[in-house]
């Protein structure tokens, strides 16, 4: 079992244990559900990790010392994109508009759709 799996299992177990303990002492439904949900949420993470275990062989988990792997040139990552800042601007104006200024909200909604479209195109 990888460390990531072990981590998720312990979090799930801890969440459910505290939820049980809390129910035992406080008999309060809201808090028990809150605590239970954070345990169960990580159960989903855990399930996902198990399901995708075969596909993910991680370099870092290599047990022997792969010194021959070191010193390699590292690949290229994308370094810039205009969409994150535009998406932030559009969603901020949308939120503010919806609450305080419907016209701004409507305008921002269109902008938001345009930005999402641009982002999706870039991601292809």
């Amino acid at each position: 079992m990888t460390i990531a799996l072990r981590m998720s299992v312990s979090i799930v177990a801890f969440g459910l244990a505290v939820a049980g303990l809390y129910w035992f002492f406080a008999r309060d439904l809201t808090g028990t559900v809150l605590l239970g949900v954070f345990g169960l949420g990580f159960l989903c993470v855990f399930a996902y990790l198990v399901a995708s275990r075969k596909k993910t062989r991680l370099d870092g988990d290599e047990q022997r010392l792969p010194s021959e792997l070191a010193g390699e040139r590292i690949g290229v990552f994308s370094i810039e994109s205009p969409w994150p800042v535009l998406l932030a601007l559009a969603s901020a104006s949308f939120l503010i508009g919806v609450v305080l200024h419907p016209m701004l909200g409507a305008f921002a909604f269109v902008a938001l759709l345009a930005v999402l479209w641009g982002l999706a195109r870039e991601s292809r």
Partner: peptide, 26 residues
């Protein structure tokens, strides 16, 4: 620290910064 060239999701990362800045200004 982990020897990676960047974050796993660089654009998500940029988006979260700008959202934080605009949130603070708001």
């Amino acid at each position: 620290h982990v020897g990676a060239p960047d974050m796993a999701f660089p654009r998500l990362n940029a988006f979260s910064y700008w959202l934080f800045l605009l949130g603070g200004l708001t």
